[in-house]
Computed example of a mutant assay.
Amino acid sequence: MKGLSFAALGLAALCVALAGCMSIGPGTVERDRLDYSAAVGDSWKSQMLLNLVKLRYGDAPVFLDVGQIVAGYSFPRSLGAVAAVNQTDGAPVINSSVGLSAGATFNDSPTVTYAPMTGERFARSLMTPIPPSVILNIIQAGNPVEEVFRTSVQSVNGVDNRRVGRLFVRRANPEFYALLPNLERLQSSGDIGMRVRQEGGEAQLQMIFRPRTAAAEESARRNVATILGLDPEAREYQVSYGTVAGSDREIALLTRSIYEILVDIASFISVPEAHVAERRVRPTAEGDIGPSGAIPPLIRIASSAQQPADAFVAVPYQGYWFYIDNRDIPSKQVFSSIMFLFTFVETRSHEAAPILTIPTTR
């Protein structure tokens, strides 16, 4: 009996020792990293779509940045054992008792900090046109020329893209839509590229066409030269920011700011007829006309009185749901590109971020 009691005590002591060595931290890394990444991504999509809808309705957009995420876990455990041995003098009987106790609690207390995107620096960055070098780098990375130019370029050598203001929507020049397929033909064949040359201590951005191309690509290159008023025999053209080129060997890109891009994308949103009748919002403008007829919208953002069943992203606003269908691949790609372009906006100020102190216990 006494041997049994001491064995139980030894077992309890071993359990306590093992419990003190166990850790729940490493096992949460993979799960938490993926879960928080997905949650932040989904919230960014919802925030972007909601702000597009608000711009469509003349409301002020508000952007909130996720500053820090601290996932805190605690798992206090306790194991105890008590034993009593009583021996009567002169008697062979031993009365003993053994008691074991255990307890555990789990606490999950994540801390998330948010920072509103405000201030002069953020506003200035939001309103500053995207540099032409960034536009060409995005194209060089494989993004379709048509998508990049329709979203981010207002005009090329005076050939205007669709322009959206607070009180108007002006259609693009038909030549703008004639230009895009020719540029895409050269992009897909790899016959167009860019180069940065240093001249006089300044970086000069150039668009380059290969000297030897197939007949179809050569025809596309000459079409580009004709539409933009370029020297058809040249193979290198200087790229600059502006409305009008200074010579027939220069390509002037008038690029848009992030704010202009958001306003343009918001204009494609299909709003409920009831809201138009109630004068809450202006009706959706008619589409552009190109050389071959009507131009499809850049992105399709629909509205519904009921929450959509299969949406890539959906948000409620003024009694309706606004969403992008999960099967609409072109709209999903354009929306994702807009979110990528938004990363070029400077959101941080010179002020130091608040320090988050996490207490620790032993």
Rank of each mutant, 00 (worst) to 15 (best):
residue 43 S to C: 05
residue 70 V to K: 13
residue 251 I to D: 03
residue 213 T to S: 12
residue 158 G to M: 07
residue 207 M to L: 15
residue 195 R to T: 12
residue 270 S to K: 11
residue 14 L to N: 03
residue 145 V to R: 06
residue 339 M to A: 15
residue 231 D to L: 07
residue 125 S to P: 00
residue 254 L to M: 12
residue 118 T to Y: 02
residue 273 E to V: 11
residue 225 A to C: 15
residue 243 T to P: 00
residue 115 A to M: 11
residue 301 I to H: 05
residue 141 A to Q: 14
residue 118 T to E: 14
residue 236 E to P: 00
residue 49 L to T: 08
residue 227 I to E: 04
residue 54 K to S: 09
residue 99 G to W: 09
residue 316 P to T: 07
residue 132 P to V: 11
residue 107 N to W: 02
residue 292 S to M: 06
residue 264 D to V: 03
residue 279 R to E: 13
residue 252 A to F: 03
residue 274 A to P: 01
residue 133 S to N: 09
residue 338 I to L: 15
residue 2 K to A: 12
residue 290 G to T: 04
residue 351 E to M: 13
residue 164 V to C: 08
residue 320 Y to W: 15
residue 158 G to L: 04
residue 3 G to Q: 11
residue 5 S to N: 06
residue 107 N to A: 14
residue 91 A to P: 01
residue 85 V to D: 09
residue 141 A to H: 03
residue 85 V to T: 08
residue 152 S to A: 15
residue 321 W to V: 05
residue 85 V to M: 09
residue 184 E to Y: 00
residue 135 I to N: 04
residue 138 I to F: 07
residue 357 T to M: 12
residue 337 S to Y: 13
residue 187 Q to D: 01
residue 81 A to G: 10
residue 103 G to V: 05
residue 159 V to H: 02
residue 265 I to A: 15
residue 91 A to Y: 00
residue 53 V to Y: 12
residue 54 K to A: 11
residue 155 S to Q: 13
residue 292 S to I: 03
residue 305 A to C: 01
residue 149 F to N: 06
residue 85 V to G: 04
residue 47 Q to A: 11
residue 253 L to T: 03
residue 212 R to L: 10
residue 69 I to Y: 08
residue 126 L to P: 00
residue 185 R to E: 12
residue 110 P to S: 12
residue 258 I to N: 07
residue 225 A to D: 05
residue 124 R to C: 03
residue 111 T to R: 11
residue 301 I to S: 07
residue 157 N to G: 04
residue 256 R to S: 08
residue 44 W to M: 15
residue 330 P to T: 12
residue 56 R to F: 12
residue 218 E to V: 06
residue 344 F to I: 13
residue 101 S to W: 02
residue 293 G to E: 07
residue 236 E to I: 15
residue 223 N to T: 12
residue 126 L to V: 12
residue 217 E to F: 03
residue 274 A to Q: 14
residue 160 D to R: 15
residue 290 G to I: 04
residue 326 N to P: 05
residue 253 L to G: 02
residue 148 V to H: 02
residue 326 N to W: 05
residue 287 G to F: 02
residue 233 E to F: 07
residue 347 T to D: 03
residue 159 V to G: 01
residue 152 S to K: 11
residue 183 L to G: 04
residue 33 R to S: 11
residue 334 V to L: 15
residue 159 V to T: 13
residue 112 V to P: 00
residue 242 G to E: 04
residue 7 A to W: 00
residue 177 Y to N: 13
residue 221 R to S: 01
residue 228 L to M: 05
residue 155 S to L: 09
residue 219 S to M: 09
residue 181 P to T: 06
residue 336 S to W: 02
residue 267 S to M: 11
residue 296 P to M: 09
residue 284 T to I: 13
residue 198 Q to L: 15
residue 48 M to K: 02
residue 98 V to E: 06
residue 310 D to T: 08
residue 158 G to Y: 02
residue 51 N to W: 07
residue 110 P to T: 10
residue 232 P to M: 05
residue 9 L to Q: 10
residue 3 G to I: 14
residue 31 R to E: 01
residue 184 E to C: 06
residue 64 L to W: 05
residue 293 G to P: 00
residue 263 V to S: 06
residue 329 I to P: 00
residue 270 S to L: 13
residue 111 T to W: 03
residue 214 A to Y: 04
residue 332 K to N: 11
residue 104 A to S: 13
residue 123 A to L: 15
residue 63 F to A: 10
residue 28 T to K: 11
residue 345 V to H: 06
residue 225 A to W: 04
residue 323 Y to R: 08
